[in-house]
Design a protein around this nucleic acid. Structure first.
Length: 435
RNA sequence: GCGCCCAUCGUCUAUCGGACAGGACACAAGGUUUUCAUCCUUGGAAGCGGGGUUCGAUUCCCCGUGGGCGCGCCA
């Protein structure tokens, strides 16, 4: 029988990093096995499940390249089938009505656990057992007539002919209930695999408080889908050798569930960032420009970022870009109005004697055509005339023309800045920041 | 409290009883470089504790400890 797996998110606004990893593992498993990867939108919470929330899920998936094989099943369309199944369970004696605990809410429908010890072989965790006394009956239809997660989930998995359920660790206990449901519905019980949780630095499951907890945030912070995808597979899984940076095809061919670890794994943003830098470095330049351009648009600098210059800047900056949020600091290439880093200014420009040197530099630069060679020559000359060590002027100049103390090679930077802008910035610094 | 699961460098991991426990991130020290970054070299860094089984245990078993998860008319 061919493998059919699913990702079943409830669209509640954001896609949690733990959920998307479950989706990735399901996807990888399906692709490895040549099976189907399906999507089910669990939109029974009518208040939170808005079309926008659904779109967020879809966007996150397409961003990561998680393509699904059949039309998504919307759980909200299954209400009737759910209720019919509940009636059937009532009839067959697998469920009964009860006002649980006399809450006054009225009667709900409760599923009767079989009352015997259970065991299933988890594809990741191995044999898991639970004795009858530790399992109690549970509600499948609320007193308001709506089905609970357990009922809906199992019924829809039957409907979708799911063969393997790969989901978070937090569901292991539910699995005993779900298996009992499958059996009493006379359906084939799928295979289960429970993924370890992703935890934060405190060892707790990732939450909003940990900053980057949602897929959208990683995207905004300048991470590449390919890097996030790759990194997430490494959390709780490894190919068994020393490879860590794997292409999607390599991931598909080496992914097996029996290599998934069963203990929780801690997220390390730094390692993600390192991977991200590698992926960025090997991006074709036009791709790099495209993603960088999106950041520029979002930043809304209020200046014209001309494409030809932008491409040159991209070429210059790509190798030192770890995440695309670094693009936010590129404003000095395109704007006459830049922010000066106070500390850097203090350290390099706001010093005795700098002013006259910069004035001389400005005069000399005004006389040449800008190229790396000519610029370097001018700077070396000014240094020599003032008895300054070779290269010592580079940093002050960098701060003067870019506002910050880090960046690409200063000659290249000045060439891209252009003569006019360079001179204008020197003029500003001489008049306003020098002492 | 009860039940289930897990346990290798700070972190992610390799090891399917047998060599110096390997790799990556991070960190440190060098080198390259006009700053930053890249790149290169080197270094420190781990088998939770205690019992067994075995010629031999990180690996198998038990106990302890630590951690995670679950115990809803949430999903």
């Amino acid at each position: 029988m061919s493998v059919r797996v699913r990702f079943a998110p409830s669209p509640t606004g954001q896609v949690h990093i733990g959920n998307i990893r479950a989706a990735i593992f399901n996807w990888l498993f399906a692709r490895h096995e040549g099976g189907k990867f399906l999507l089910r939108i669990e939109d029974t919470d009518r208040e939170r499940s808005t079309p926008e929330a659904v779109k967020t899920v879809l966007d996150a998936m397409s961003w990561l390249g998680l393509d699904y094989d059949e039309e998504p099943l919307y759980q909200s369309t299954r209400q009737k089938a759910h209720m019919e199944a509940a009636e059937q369970l009532l009839k067959s004696g697998h469920a009964y009505k009860e006002d649980k605990g006399g809450t006054g809410k009225g009667e709900c429908i409760v599923f009767r656990m079989p009352g015997e010890d259970m065991m299933f072989s988890d594809v990741i965790k191995g044999d898991l057992r639970k004795s009858a006394k530790d399992m109690s009956d549970f509600v499948i239809v609320r007193s308001d007539g709506t089905p609970t997660f357990h009922l809906a989930n199992v019924l829809d998995d039957i409907e979708m002919k799911i063969t393997h359920i790969i989901r978070g660790d937090d569901h292991v206990e539910n699995t005993f209930r779900h298996i009992a449901l499958f059996r009493s519905l006379q359906a084939d019980v799928p295979k289960y695999g429970h993924l370890p949780m992703i935890i934060n630095q405190q060892g707790k499951p990732y939450s909003k408080r940990d900053g980057a907890a949602f897929v959208g945030e990683f995207r905004e912070k300048g991470y590449l889908a390919s890097a996030l995808f790759n990194y997430l597979t490494l959390l709780g899984w490894s190919p068994g050798d020393d490879r860590e940076k794997l292409t999607r095809d390599e991931l598909i061919s080496s992914f097996t569930l029996d290599r998934v670890k069963s203990g929780p794994a801690q997220m390390d943003i730094r390692k993600l960032t390192h991977l991200n830098a590698q992926y960025i470095a090997e991006l074709p330049i036009d791709q790099f420009c495209k993603v960088a351009r999106d950041v520029v648009v979002r930043m809304n600098w209020g200046v014209n970022v001309e494409e030809a210059l932008f491409i040159k800047v991209c070429k210059l900056m790509q190798s030192r870009t770890h995440t695309f949020s670094a693009v936010e600091d590129w404003k000095y290439f395109f704007s006459d109005n830049i922010a000066y880093d106070e500390k850097s200014v203090k350290k390099t420009i706001a010093k005795e004697g700098v002013k006259s040197i910069l004035i001389l530099l400005k005069e000399r630069l005004a006389e040449i055509d800008f190229s790396e060679g000519t610029i370097e020559k001018v700077i070396r000359g000014v240094e020599k005339e003032n008895g300054i060590g070779e290269g010592k002027l580079n940093q002050p100049i960098r701060v003067a023309v870019t506002g910050v103390s880090i960046g690409a090679g200063i000659y290249e930077t000045m060439v891209l800045l252009g003569k006019n802008r360079t001179l204008a910035k020197l003029e500003y610094v001489i008049n306003n920041l020098c002492i």
